[in-house]
Design a protein around this nucleic acid. Sequence first.
DNA 1: TCAAAAGTGTTAAAAATACACCCATGG
DNA 2: CCATGGGTGTATTTTTAACACTTTTGA
Lengths: 234, 234
Amino acid sequence: MYTTSRRARKTPPRLSVCVDCVVFGCDEAELQALLIRRAAPPYEGRWALPGGFVRGDETLDAAARRELEEETGLRGVFLEQLYTFGAPGRDPRRRVVSVAYYALAPLSDHRVRAATDARDAAWFAVAAAPPLAFDHDEILATARQRLRGKVRYQPIGFELLPPRFTLTQLQRLYEAALGQPLDKRNFRKKVLAMGLLEELDETQQDVAHRAARLYRFDRKRYRQLTNSGFNFEL
Amino acid sequence: MYTTSRRARKTPPRLSVCVDCVVFGCDEAELQALLIRRAAPPYEGRWALPGGFVRGDETLDAAARRELEEETGLRGVFLEQLYTFGAPGRDPRRRVVSVAYYALAPLSDHRVRAATDARDAAWFAVAAAPPLAFDHDEILATARQRLRGKVRYQPIGFELLPPRFTLTQLQRLYEAALGQPLDKRNFRKKVLAMGLLEELDETQQDVAHRAARLYRFDRKRYRQLTNSGFNFEL
DNA sequence: TCAAAAGTGTTAAAAATACACCCATGG
DNA sequence: CCATGGGTGTATTTTTAACACTTTTGA
C-alpha cells in the first residue's frame, strides 16, 4: 500500500479535465437553464451542459468562459466555480474530471438566441429539463441548490435581470430562485432599505396596465458597503 | 478559433489531478491546521497541505481520504470538497489541477500524533501558520473562509470536538471559527433551545475549578429535524 | 480562603411577519 | 368601464442583544 502510493506519487496518472457550465436565466415566471444538444457520441442527440476540455495553458475560469462563448455566444456574464465531479465512469470513454461552473445571464439578451441557432441550443425551465447526458443532471441539481443558498446572502440575483428592472421582476426572480412566494410589501421594504437600488426616472413601456418604476442595481455602492463591513442578506 | 476548439475536443490534453486537504483541529483556544513538511523538491523543507495524486480508478473523495490516512493516519473524519485550484504554473514542474478538501478532526485524537511522528507533520495555529508550498496559502485561506461561513448553518462544529464536551468548549470552538467573541448566556440559551444536545449525567474530571456538565451531540435527532424541514442556524 | 470557571433571567431594541385597499393605465 | 398589475403603512410577534452576580470545586 505504501509503496504503491510512493510509485503513484512519482508517476502521477494523467487524466482529462473539462469544465461544464450551468447557465441560469430567468423569465417572468421561471428559472431556466441553457442546454446544448450533443452532435456526437456518446449520448448523441441528448441535451447536455455546455462545456469542454481545459487547455494546457489556461486557468479553469478562462476555460469556462471560453467554452461558454464558443458554445453559446455568451460573454461577460457572472461565472463562479460550483463543484468538481470526478467519479470514474462518469464519461464512458475515459476518465474525465469535470470542474463545474454556474453562470447567470439575463434572458433578455438576444445574443444568446443569435449564437445558438447554429448549434442546437435552447433554454429549458429547470423544473422541466429533459434527462441530460453524463452526470449532468446531478450537476444541474447541485447548481440549483447552490443558487438557492447563495442568492440570499449575495446580490447575484441582479445578474439575471436586465440593467434596468422593476421591483416586481426582482421579486419574481427571488421567488423562482428560492422556490417560494414572498410578500410584496415586505420584499420592497427590505430591498429598498438596503440602499443598493437606484430609483430611475423611467417607467416600463408598452404594458397594458399602470407602468412600473425602473430601478438599477448600484454596484459601486455595494462594493463600498461591503468593504465597510456591511452584509447583504435578503 | 473554432477549429482549434474542435481539435482540442478531439485530443483533450491530459493533466495531473491531485487532492489537497486542509485539516482543521481546535484546542481550547485556537483553530489549528495539520501540515506536513515536504521531503523532496520542489519546495523541499517547506510546510504544505497533506495530499497527493488521484489514481485512475478512485473517486475524488476516496483519493482525499486515502491521502489523508497515508500522510496523517486520520480516518473517519468529516471531509468535504472545498474548491478546485488549477492555475497553470501553480506547480513549477507541470500542470497540476488540485481538488482541495477540508476536513475536521477532534484534536484530542492521539492517533494523529502517532501517525505523524514518522513523517514530519505538526499542528499549527492557523493564525500563525508558516508560509506554505505551492498555492497552499491560498487554499488554507479559502478553507478558513468556508469554515466561517458553514459553521453557522450546519452543525459541523461538533466534528471538531470529542464525543462528550462542555458548553464552554463548544463556545470556544465557535469563537475560534467565527473569529469573534460570543455572549455566554445567549450562546447557551440558543444552542440548548435547538434540542440537539443531549445532557449527560457526567461532569468534567480533574479540573481545578467547578466541573462542567458534559453534553453529546444527538445526530439521530438532527437527521429527524432536518428531514422535517428544520434549519440549523447559530 | 482564594482563584477559576460554571451556571443562571430579565429587559429593551430590532427585525420579521401578516395583512387590504386605492391607483394608474391601456384595451 | 374594467381588467391588470403598481404601489403603499401599521400593528403584532419573534428574535436578538446587552448585561452581573452566585455557585462549586480543587489547590
